[in-house]
Design a protein around this nucleic acid. Sequence first.
DNA 1: TTCATTATGATGGAGACCATCATTAAAGGC
DNA 2: GCCTTTAATGATGGTCTCCATCATAATGAA
Lengths: 379, 379
Amino acid sequence: MTAETTGGDLSRLRHLNALTAIRVLRADEAGFTLTELARRTGLSRASTEDVVRDLTERGWVAEAEKTAGGVGRPARRYRFRADAGHLLGVDIGRHRVLALLTDLDGKVLHSHRVEAAPGLGRVERLAATDDAVRGVLRAGALSGDRLWASGVATTGLVDGTGKVMLSEALHEWTGVDLAAHLGRLVAGRVLVENDSKLAALAENWQGVARHSRDVVFILSGVATGAGLIIDGKLHRGFGNAAGEIGALPAVGWTRAPEHLRDWPGEGDIFAAARDGDRRAAAAIRRYVKDLAVGVSALVLTLDPELVVVGGGFAGSADLLIGPLRAELDRWCIRTPEIRVSTLADQGVALGAVKLAADHVGTVLASGSGLTSIDQFARA
Amino acid sequence: MTAETTGGDLSRLRHLNALTAIRVLRADEAGFTLTELARRTGLSRASTEDVVRDLTERGWVAEAEKTAGGVGRPARRYRFRADAGHLLGVDIGRHRVLALLTDLDGKVLHSHRVEAAPGLGRVERLAATDDAVRGVLRAGALSGDRLWASGVATTGLVDGTGKVMLSEALHEWTGVDLAAHLGRLVAGRVLVENDSKLAALAENWQGVARHSRDVVFILSGVATGAGLIIDGKLHRGFGNAAGEIGALPAVGWTRAPEHLRDWPGEGDIFAAARDGDRRAAAAIRRYVKDLAVGVSALVLTLDPELVVVGGGFAGSADLLIGPLRAELDRWCIRTPEIRVSTLADQGVALGAVKLAADHVGTVLASGSGLTSIDQFARA
DNA sequence: TTCATTATGATGGAGACCATCATTAAAGGC
DNA sequence: GCCTTTAATGATGGTCTCCATCATAATGAA
């Protein structure tokens, strides 16, 4: 539930003001002077000082380096202690598991990657996941109980409790309780979500969709998926199945990647197309044609500001975007801008981190959140 | 912009508390005692009294009838003065213009209907609109400058300023500046929106979708349209073109109603189907089949809790819903519940009222909103 | 050294909330 | 009709949070 705009106690007012102060402080790592902060929060200098003192005592804010230069008495600077806690993001893919360790602002501190064959069974894949998590914790010299929250990405539909409801891409994966499994390695909440959805979230957070409130994200790879950002928020759907337009046979998203997979030539089909191979180019054209039907359906439904293409094929976006735009122009009333993800193969895992970060944000906003920073984990 | 959860002054806290008090009070026309109100707002009795006194002085709240019975000293009751202002909702349809006059809570006080032939030109249709508005104002013995806000529904795409960008259904309608036109008759803001979107809004407000946050609404009539409620809010899209899935040729929404329109038999095709006419039944089946492709695309994209069918054909829903469900079952991962609108031909106009009501709500929430009630209009 | 500039810290005041308690008003039993 | 019970009302004092203002402190420039 979002923090309702409801009033209450005087302490509630202080809480709101502390939250805005933190929001401002997080905008710049270098920190702010009290005067700057006062201006940006809209509070008086005196009150700002009070709020900052409070937050410092509770451990959320620390004094930063004074900046030299400038006339007058140099001001103290204060910054949000993003380093006070850590978040974990895990992307369980077909070929590998990627784990990211970040600070509270989502800055990646360490990453660890464990290869995993596509045919791996449930137990082995979970073991690879554990390896990735242990590896990244080791790199950060942290134990799992120091984590504030974790996010996990997987293919397939995920239910509200962190169980995989249905997965066609991974063997023996349906029914896995990822939240429970990860919960044995890490402290704090473990949140599980579909990989396409999380990649969309990541684009909206740190990627090319940072400034857009309505985004259709397309995960273009050996499997095709979509994630929707609507009104600045990840749209999950009532049964967590939003964006599954590929299920419509006419859309042919299951068929689309086959055009590329069945490429009989040697080497990379995209490289071949760039070298002028006509059959490769034709196969890519067929792929885009199939892809575009589904994208058009999503775009016509939502009328987004932006379409973002990510996933494994995004590296060859130069060959995809042009034809995709042409196809969309055929079907859509207004073709949105199309951009290519720049998050490479970290996108999904970053989205998982964002899931964890949002959970922390929710707890902060929820009344009891800003009490001492030490009491935070296991909240 | 939504009221951000931002802190501020002490007066801001009072403002928030006043807003919650009003929100509670609006829930029951009969009003509340101070004790009840205090419990529901979470404030102390003393503060609640203060807030209510304040609101009473400003004209937003009035004392209601004491309820008899019960032991002890009978408590005063307070109620929101929904009758303090009026809202207007206008639905400019192909065959008629419908104007509703309501109180601030959207309770319909008067309605006025003016017939209009489908072939009417711009000037004549605007004249009919004026007639409808003047008629409903006369019925309510109000002059236009007593209105706080108005909403207008029309077919076609509408831009942010209240101009019709594109309309295929009505003659000479593209480019009409409805906001400016209505503005000469009424005070306060005039908000214009597409009819399907507004019908969706109405269902979410007073109709069968009252308790759902994600809804696909289908306007099923001589023209087909859709409106989307996402996360409890009307989704417009970046270019205000959300839900226009009918533009996809494969969907065939433009074709769909023709199956019914071209019915060569005499009388109503639905009545004929009920009487056992096989050709009528077959035509209806074809209509539903065409309709269902688009609905499936919307449903797969959004995974809503609910699909609501409204519009002119909703009266014959008994013949439509079953087949529609069967078709959706074929395509969708999870077929949502399907309900039929009960708002009859008032749905669209009610949505227009909701648009106006929301505007009033926004002004209330925005800082200066709760000052004296008299200064409200022209805010 | 002095001045201008900017940050800091302290004081007093106002607004909004709360807890508590004496008072008031009605219903019902005697 | 009087008294008891019940529940609302109104008043008091206290606390918290914010604000405006002013004296003080620290630094760079003249």
